[in-house]
Design a protein around this nucleic acid. Structure first.
Length: 582
RNA sequence: CGGGGCGUAGCGUAGCUUGGUAGCGCGCUUGUUUCGGGUACAAGAGGUCGUGAGUUCAAAUCUCACCGCCCCGACCA
């Protein structure tokens, strides 16, 4: 490819609407352009890099036994109603109407479609297991698209769906995808690691996310360096709060006391009351699937809403409004409690941290009053005990007992063991060897392809631009003759090397622009080609050309060795990202 | 949806407080120059100042509404 014949608009200045470095570089290096918020056009270099990622994914999916298909992005709403997600996923579903005013949905994912296919076509255990995958555009009505390709309204995803006859088989399929993901991200040059994950609205009972550590990520990952435990904060557990709950119980009965104007945990810790946060019961009123519930935590703990949904089985939950609190408990936030005057219709969920907690202080369900001497087990009617709290850094890992750390990360992949949730609802059943009909056991596996591409940039860059791993770079070599006037020795040699390298299977872009050396150097570094082969009159006079790896030192090599040296360098780089020999 | 910020040439921005001929840098065009790290000089093209209404003799500037973008939060398969 010749620079003058492709379309590679680089930007010297940082676009004002890009905040994070990978988003800035996507724009500056001429990889993408924004149409509008959350919608981007891929330009030639961006598209080439994207296709590299897709090719790696396809190779590894095929290697893992995946079968590629392509499903419709536009889908009928009835299959979504059948699975129950027309409601549960309504906030992210794009809906469109055709000219007959009939409604359609733009698929945010394809469980419904693939399960419908399986229901029709897979009828015998002899046809199992099967793992279908596709690389498809997905649509999500994101409330707030941001960070370029990281969170977009429309994006490319690789999604795979496995169908097995048995639970054990499903675990084998899961493990195959898990291993394939590990290879895929390694081959993309990404430092990605798996973490235990919450399954969210998609359902299922076993799940890992693949995370790329990055301060700009939107996920918090809890991990233990000693045991290797790692989990999304939505899922993470620990041995509990670092400070024990003070036991100041005297055995006394709950006692109401006036706390005018005290409506926060914080305020109650101050004079005159001076109740430590760890001795308070935090009472949260939530509306879970239109039912009012109470969630109790220790005063210094934070609710983990993902756990709330998981433990209660609710599809959606939100904090109750002050009015809703008042009508349920007769008091407003700041004076709420579960010890007295709780209607029997209101379920009370309590965090394990409060088990056996005695001598606690909590709201009295009477504005301006609290209760002291509350023993949770004795005084509160708890419907269900569970882990509802958010793990904090420094708490001890459940297994190893070592301190946990927390870091930000970008989620690039997610694997789920789904079980029979979708196969039952959409009638994907098969006849087993014993003649009985069973639902297929499913798994689903996603990789955000466009997000992965941006994660590669987020992880590989410096002040000059992108530093691509060679496996994902739009071109492997940037051939840079400094003088391109027709007939100039530098151009003549460049054309010769271009032909030879291209014939040898090296992906070369020839910077044939009539521009100053500084411009060409800066651009090649901004776009981030892994190797620059520079041909200038000075070194050519000495019979030499220059090899400059991106981010590495410049090497002068004799002209006659140039092709061999480039091929060697490229092959070494390629090999370093190849995890399994073909 | 709540909070904050911003919309002026392809990009980055000044001007707005205190209303009065829209400016700069980059990029672009032409010429000269330079030719190993975003050359230098000169000439030039390019603007409904996001849209609409209002106030005013006069609005980029003040007021209101709307639209769009960015950030924080909520949300996130």
């Amino acid at each position: 490819m010749r620079w003058t014949q492709t379309f590679l608009p680089t930007l010297k200045e940082v676009p004002s609407d890009a905040e994070i470095v990978s988003h800035q570089l996507l724009l500056r290096a001429g990889l993408v352009r924004k149409l509008t918020g959350g919608l981007y056009t891929f330009l030639p270099m961006g598209l080439r890099a994207l296709k590299k990622v897709e090719a790696i994914i396809r190779q590894e999916m095929d290697r893992a036994g995946g079968i590629e298909v392509l499903m419709p992005a536009l889908q009928p709403p009835d299959i979504w109603q059948q699975s129950g997600r027309y409601e549960s996923a309504r906030d992210v579903l794009f809906k469109v109407k055709d000219s007959a005013q009939r409604e359609w949905v733009l698929g945010p994912t394809h469980e419904e479609v693939i399960t419908t296919l399986a229901a029709a076509e897979i009828n015998s255990y002899r046809q199992l297991p099967k793992c279908f995958y596709q690389v498809q555009l997905k649509f999500r009505d994101e409330i707030r698209p941001r960070f370029g390709l990281m969170r977009a309204k429309e994006f490319i995803m690789k999604d795979a769906y496995s169908f097995d006859a048995t639970d054990e088989g499903a675990m084998v399929s899961y493990k195959k995808m898990y291993d394939a993901y590990t290879r895929i991200f390694a081959r993309c040059g990404l430092k990605a690691f798996p973490v235990e994950a919450d399954t969210g609205v998609i359902g299922g009972n076993y799940s890992h996310e693949f995370m790329v550590p990055a301060e700009t990520g939107e996920n918090d990952v809890v991990y233990c360096e000693v045991s290797g435990y790692a989990a999304n904060i939505e899922k993470a557990t620990s041995r509990g709060a670092l400070t024990p709950t003070p036991d100041v119980s005297t055995g006394a009965a709950p006692e109401k006391f006036a706390t005018p104007g005290v409506v926060t945990i914080e305020a109650l810790t101050a004079a005159p009351h001076q109740v430590p946060a760890a001795s308070q019961v935090k009472t949260l009123v939530y509306v879970a699937d239109s039912k009012t519930i109470l969630v109790l935590l220790r005063g210094d703990d934070q609710l983990n809403e993902a756990k709330l949904l998981a433990r209660t089985g609710a599809i959606q939950a939100r904090p109750a409004t002050p009015d809703e609190c008042f009508s349920a408990l007769g008091a407003r936030p700041g004076s709420l409690g579960a010890a007295q005057n709780v209607p029997s219709t209101v379920s009370v969920y309590a965090d394990e941290q409060l088990r056996n907690a005695r001598g606690m202080t909590t709201g009295a369900n009477d504005d301006g009053f609290h209760l002291r001497h509350v023993d949770v087990d004795r005084d509160i009617r708890v419907s269900q005990w569970a882990d509802f709290r958010t793990v904090a850094a420094g708490e001890l890992a459940v297994v190893s007992g070592q301190p946990l750390k927390i870091r930000r990360a970008i989620e690039v992949g997610h694997v789920f063991k789904l079980g029979t949730k979708y196969s039952e609802k959409l009638n994907s059943t098969f006849l087993a060897e014993n003649g009985l009909r069973h639902p297929t056991v499913m798994g689903c596996y996603g990789i955000g392809v466009t997000r992965t591409l941006q994660a590669v940039i987020e992880q590989g860059n410096d002040k000059d631009g992108i530093i691509w791993p060679i496996s994902v770079a739009p071109f492997e070599v940037c051939l840079t003759p400094l003088n391109v006037t027709p007939g100039a020795p530098t151009l003549v040699l460049a054309e010769k090397l271009y032909a030879e390298l291209t014939a040898a299977g090296i992906e070369v872009i020839l910077d044939d622009r009539d521009d100053r050396p500084g411009v060409k150097f800066k651009d090649s570094e901004l776009v981030g080609f892994p190797l620059r082969l520079g041909i200038g009159e000075k070194s050519l006079a000495k019979g030499q050309v220059e090899l400059k790896p991106r981010g590495g030192a410049l090497m002068a090599v004799p002209v006659e060795e140039a092709v061999a040296r480039v091929i060697e360098w490229v092959k070494t780089e390629r090999a370093s990202l190849q995890t399994v020999s073909d």
